[in-house]
Design a protein around this nucleic acid. Structure first.
Length: 573
RNA sequence: CGGGGUGUAGCGCAGCCUGGUAGCGCAACUGCUUUGGGAGCAGUGGGUCGGGAGUUCGAAUCUCUCCACCCCGACCA
């Protein structure tokens, strides 16, 4: 590509809206342009990267024998009503009405359309298992779009759906897909990790997320330093605790705490050790419970894991905290003075809570706390559950090693859906036994456009983007020095450019006749992994200058046989 | 959805308080000089001041209203 015929538009200044590195660099390098909130145009430069990612995904899916299709982006409401998601999906579903008042949505995902397709196409177990995929623009009306294409409303996604005669077949394809995903992310050149994940409201027995590791990631993942255990913190279990509480050494007593309505204030104002405090969280109870609310107990220095709490049968899902009025009406005291002693609500305690002794909690009377609380003597031992988030240094739940935390950007997610959709949509096949069978399904997503942002988030420096080679927009930049003046340089650059094209190198030839500094800065900003500089100086000695994006020193390449030497450098020869 | 903020040239901003008909830097265009890490000089083009309504002789500026965009908020007992 000749720069003079390309649309390269870099900026020195950063548009005010960019918050994170990848967003800033994508705007400065001119990869994307915002049309409106959460909706972006991919420029020729950005599109080259997007399509590299896309083609790696497509290639691996094809190799695995999955079949590419293209489903409509606009979907009729009737299909979504069949599964109940027209209402359940929530405000993220962009609903559209046509001229005659019929309802549609712009597809945020395609389980319904896919299942409808398959129930009409597939009749026999002999056609199973089968997996279809597509790479397509999706729309989710995010509550708060941000970070450019990282959390955009319109985005490019690869979604795949598998159909099976039984769960064993689903399990096979699921793990096969796990391997295919690992190959895909390996090929992009990114550092990633697969983790156990929450399958969410969709249900299903098994789910893994794939995360690109990056400091700025929105998700926290936990992994063991001595085993393969890796999990989203949402899901990461706290290792089972055994034992009994230590002996009571203190009397139960009440203190006045008008100045302490948070754990922090309690610790600071009354010299209580935070490990001796208990937080009492009042949450809405599940519908079939007798009470309206349930109390959850966790140690003062811990944080509640909402996913774990929602999974309790006594607790409403989604999790909802009682508001101040509800707490006052139920307990008779305000938040800030709550505790388990004398509480007339169902109580579920984090497992470590029942091992505590001589602990501190609110007295369910405004501005009062109990000190020296002990189980059995002062109150009954409650039922327990794993309620808290794991932290750095916790033992791994598989018993091997210690947990460490890292931040990740979710770029892939695979689910075993089971029959959640095929049952409500009556997607059945005839089995070997001559009877109808509901097909278990799997679904598997990859955020193609998000990978581009995640790649930058993981690979950048103060000069710009440092693309991993497999997804770089160009492999090599060719920069002539002073081409405007020097016929020699210009001729040599032209010649080399033609030869490199012949050799199949994706070369960006900067024939713009700009000052060198401008070219260097542009090429480094857009992150081309290799660069060749041609100048009078080098030509006098029969050499070119070569440098990798991440290097700070040049190396020389002999002009004779330069193409082969370059091919070797970029690993394409 | 709640709270906060911002809309002035392609981008980044000043001007608004105290009303008098719009400016700076970067970018773009022309010419000359310059040329190995974002050049210099001279000149040029480009603005419904987010939209609408109102107050006023006069509104970017004051008032009302609508819209768009950005930020914060779902771990609080």
């Amino acid at each position: 590509m000749q720069a003079s015929k390309f649309h390269l538009f870099t900026t020195r200044e950063t548009p005010a809206e960019a918050e994170i590195t990848s967003h800033r660099l994508m705007l400065r390098s001119g990869m994307i342009r915002k049309l409106t909130s959460g909706i972006y145009t991919w420029t020729p430069l950005g599109l080259r990267v997007l399509q590299k990612v896309e083609s790696i995904v497509r290639d691996e899916m094809d190799k695995a024998g999955y079949l590419e299709i293209l489903m409509p982006a606009v979907q009729p409401a009737e299909l979504w009503r069949e599964t109940g998601r027209w209402e359940k999906f929530g405000a993220q579903l962009l609903k559209i009405e046509d001229r005659s008042g019929r309802h549609y949505c712009f597809g945020p995902t395609h389980e319904e359309v896919m299942t409808d397709f398959v129930r009409n196409e597939i009749r026999s177990y002999k056609q199973l298992p089968i997996t279809f995929y597509q790479i397509q623009t999706k729309f989710r009306d995010e509550i708060r779009p941000r970070f450019g294409v990282m959390r955009a409303r319109e985005f490019l996604m690869k979604d795949a759906y598998s159909f099976h005669i039984d769960d064993a077949s689903l399990d096979d394809t699921y793990w096969e897909m796990h391997r295919v995903y690992s190959r895909i992310f390996t090929r992009t050149g990114l550092s990633f990790r697969s983790v156990e994940a929450d399958s969410g409201a969709i249900g299903g027995s098994k789910s893994h997320e794939f995360h690109v590791l990056a400091e700025s990631g929105e998700d926290l993942i936990a992994f063991s330093d001595q085993s393969d255990y890796a999990s989203n913190v949402e899901m990461a279990a706290v290792a089972n605790l055994r034992g009994n509480p230590t002996e009571a050494t203190e009397e139960l007593r009440t203190i006045d705490t008008p100045d302490a309505h948070t754990i922090e204030e309690l610790v600071n104002a009354h010299g209580v050790a935070i490990e001796k405090t208990i937080k009492t969280l009042i949450v809405q109870a599940a519908q079939d419970c007798k009470e309206d609310f349930v109390a959850l107990l966790i140690r003062g220095d811990r944080t509640l894991n909402a996913v774990k709490a929602e999974r309790l049968e006594q607790v409403a899902s989604p999790l909802r905290f009682a508001d101040d009025e509800e707490i006052r009406a139920t307990v008779g005291a305000g938040p800030g003075s709550l505790g388990p002693v004398g509480l007339s609500l169902p109580v579920i305690a984090d497992q470590e809570i029942t091992l505590m002794s001589d602990f501190v909690a609110g007295a369910n009377t405004d501005d009062k706390h109990y000190l020296g609380i002990n189980w059995k003597r002062d109150l009954a031992v409650p039922i327990t559950a794993d309620l808290r988030n794991v932290i750095e240094g916790d033992p791994s739940p598989d018993g091997k090693g210690t947990l460490h935390l890292a931040r990740g950007i979710e770029v892939g997610h695979i689910f075993q859906l089971g029959t959640a959709y095929s049952e409500s949509m009556k997607a059945v096949v005839l089995g070997e036994d001559g009877k109808s069978h509901i097909m278990p399904m799997g679904c598997y997503g990859i955020g193609v456009s998000r990978i581009v942002a995640a790649a930058i988030e993981q690979n950048n420096d103060d000069r710009g983007i440092c693309w991993p080679e497999p997804i770089a927009p160009f492999q090599l930049a060719l920069l002539p020095m002073n081409a405007k003046k020097s016929q020699r340089v210009q001729a040599a650059a032209q010649e080399l450019y033609s030869q490199l094209l012949q050799a199949g190198v994706e070369v960006f030839y900067d024939d713009r006749k700009l000052r060198p500094g401008v070219m260097f800065n542009d090429i480094e900003l857009i992150g081309i992994p290799h660069r060749i500089v041609i100048g009078e100086r080098g030509l006098d000695n029969g050499v070119l200058e070569y440098r990798r994006r991440e290097d700070t020193e040049n190396t020389e390449i002999q002009l004779d046989g330069a193409v082969d030497a370059i091919l070797e450098k970029i690993g394409a020869g």
